[in-house]
Computed example of a mutant assay.
Amino acid sequence: MSTYSIKDLEQLSGIKAHTLRIWEQRYNLLQPMRTDTNIRFYDDASLKLILNVALLNDNGYKISKIANMSEAEMREEVVKLTEKTLTHDDQIHALTLCMIEMDEERFEKVLSTNILKIGFEQTMLNIIYPFMSKIGVLWQTGAINPAQEHFMSNLIRQKLIVAIDGQIYKGGGKKFLLYLPEGEWHEISILFAAYLVKLKGHKLIYLGQNTPDEDLQIVYRLHQPEFLMTVITTSPNSEEVQDYIYSISERFKNSEIILSGYQIVGQDLDFPKNVRAMHYAKQLKEFMEEMDLALQEK
C-alpha cells in the first residue's frame, strides 16, 4: 500500500490542501490515518476518492452532492464524464485513477478514445506528457510505487511502438540516431522523439534503452547521422552528466546532438557548440517543423 501526504493529494488532484482540510471537517470526506508519531497520512483509497471528487467538482458538481454519493455512484459519474468530455485535465485525472487502480482495460480505453478523437500526437503532447509530469515527482519521492509506474509506462510504451511502426520511411530527409545511455531505462520520451522523426519523413536509427557505449560508436561510424539524440533521466547522474556531455560532443563532433531529460532540463550545464538542450516535447516538435520548412525552401 502506498501512502500520501496531504501535499501529495494536492499535487495529484489540483485541490488545495486547505480546501481538502475544510472538506474533511465539514463533510467527513476523508479519514486520514496517523503514524506512531501522530503524523497524518492517506492511503490509495483516499487518493482514488479525492481524484474522483476533483473531477466531478471541476465539472460543476457541488461538493455537498458529491459527499452524499456512494463509491459506486461516484465512479459511475466519473466514467460518464471521461467518456464524453475532452478536457485535458479530466483525461489526466482519469489516467491517474487507472494507474492507482492498475485498471488496464480502463487505461487502454481512455488512451484509445483520445487518440481517435484528437490524434496520437496531440494525445501525447496534451495528455500523456502532463500526466507523466504530474506523477513524476511523486514517483521520485516514493509516493507512487514501482509497480504502478511500470504498469503505466509499459502501456504507453506499447502505444508508441505501434505508432512508430505505422510510419513508413520513403527515403530522403535527415538521418537521426536515437539511443539511451548505459544504465538509462526511461524510454517514453525517446520513443516519442522516434515517432516524430519518422512522422516527419526522416531516417530513424533507434538503439533503445541501456545502449553500450561501444555499440553506440560502432553504429555511429556506420551510419554517420546528422543528428544524435538522447534523453538522460537518471544515468549518467548529476555528478557525471557534464563530463558525459563533453565526451559525446567530442566523439560525435560531426553531428548535432540533442539532449533532454531530468538531468538536463533546468540544470546549470555547459553545452558545446554542437550540443543543444530541449526542454519539452513541444520544443522537439517545433524543431522538427522548422527543419521541414528549411528543407522545403532549399
Rank of each mutant, 00 (worst) to 15 (best):
I39C: 02
Q148H: 12
H186W: 02
P146F: 04
Q122P: 07
Q167H: 03
L196Q: 13
M132W: 08
L86F: 13
E77S: 15
M288C: 05
Q296V: 07
Y4C: 02
L125T: 09
M288E: 02
H279M: 04
Y220D: 05
L49N: 08
Q91V: 14
N114T: 15
I135R: 04
N274S: 05
D90W: 05
Q267R: 15
A281E: 00
E250H: 07
K84G: 02
K134S: 11
I232Y: 01
P130I: 00
D268H: 08
W185V: 13
I164N: 05
I115P: 13
K62F: 04
E240M: 02
R40N: 06
S46V: 07
E76P: 07
E240A: 01
I15N: 03
Y169K: 09
I135N: 06
A143N: 10
T211M: 07
L216C: 11
M229T: 07
A194R: 04
E76H: 13
L111S: 11
G173L: 05
Y4M: 01
L228T: 11
I92S: 03
D8W: 00
V53Q: 02
N210E: 02
S70F: 00
F131Y: 15
K174D: 14
A67R: 06
R40M: 08
H223L: 03
F192M: 07
R34E: 06
G142P: 10
I6N: 05
F120I: 10
S70P: 10
G201I: 07
M229W: 10
E214I: 15
Y206D: 11
